[in-house]
Design a protein around this nucleic acid. Sequence first.
DNA 1: GTAAGTATACCAACTAGTGAATATACAAGC
DNA 2: GCTTGTATATTCACTAGTTGGTATACTTAC
Lengths: 194, 194
Amino acid sequence: MSEEANPTRKRLVDAATKLFYAEGIGRVSVDAVAEKAGLTKRTLYYHFKSKDDLIAAYLEGRDQPNLEQMAGWFEAAEGGADKKVEAIFTNLARVTRHPKWKGCGFLRTAAELAATPGHPAVKAGARHKTNFEKWLASALSGHDVAEAKMLAREIVLLMDGAFSSMLIHHNPDYVAAAGHAAATLIRARMMGKG
Amino acid sequence: MSEEANPTRKRLVDAATKLFYAEGIGRVSVDAVAEKAGLTKRTLYYHFKSKDDLIAAYLEGRDQPNLEQMAGWFEAAEGGADKKVEAIFTNLARVTRHPKWKGCGFLRTAAELAATPGHPAVKAGARHKTNFEKWLASALSGHDVAEAKMLAREIVLLMDGAFSSMLIHHNPDYVAAAGHAAATLIRARMMGKG
DNA sequence: GTAAGTATACCAACTAGTGAATATACAAGC
DNA sequence: GCTTGTATATTCACTAGTTGGTATACTTAC
């Protein structure tokens, strides 16, 4: 009935996640999602009132796992804040090389839905990006809180730029350059402009 | 017959440009493009062998105008390289506020076509981004050429991040923050880490 | 027996792309 | 000045398939 403890609903969201990410929301029919879940379309429409609803559920389901991935990479790295952030980008450069990587699902969905600004899926994507930015600011706020917020925003910009550049060029050098720039900004702002 | 001097072809590309940018390539039918151009679909298919071809022509047509826009903003600004680059972002923050602004057409198209990597339109988008990066590197290369190239890449990353963040948040503060970060990087790298 | 969940079958609208005919322009033959 | 031939350019009508969404009925579990 509710969110988590519904196996049928979860099967549908899982199927939607795989298909929407792999092919894009516009190129995947609700029939295809239902079939992938081993259910009929009518069942899908029992659990979701529309395709747009299903798209929103797909992105909402990706918020926590993505945040945990990033935090895991940050915490596992040795060194100061600059090195820890650069480690995120190093890991990103690795995963974005994988042929199944098809960009950041949140940004891609926002791009596909640019013509319908109030779409619940775009809002879910914005919430995720804000959550990530807030987590990053808190992870960086050993020194000045205001400066950590500014830095977090700049790093988010570099990361979204890296996702976009990687998607269009398929060249991981852009991700590495973004990591390098992020580390430079951290040193320039946190460590006395060095 | 050829590329430029074909009014019918131009009418089709102009109509495609307006519709594809406003609504996204997947949400616009070739019928809609033909109708907007005041022609029949069959005529469209006389000039373009497929919808994919038309999409590629749309992005190829945006390369030069976009570059000229950016170069114009850069050259019109007063001050050093940091100020001139920041001026690009200031202008960008203004135009991205407009309700008709729907993201960077090159990035949005790459996002929509992420499932078909070799698509000619994605290649056209990648060429444009490379052209912009090269122009920026040459515009910054008063000092060290290698450093100008690195800087140009980092600024491109910030700009694409700004486009993406603006698309998902509809908040121009992200564009301003990107401009601020770009100026900081220029000063840190070109002007003796100040 | 009632309510939640699932299935079959269907719809009207829309999709990219095509076959065959036609219109226009311009040249050559006489 | 006509006719004929040919290449370019455009239209009408069509196909074959897909789309999001629904009306109706069946099956469980309690």
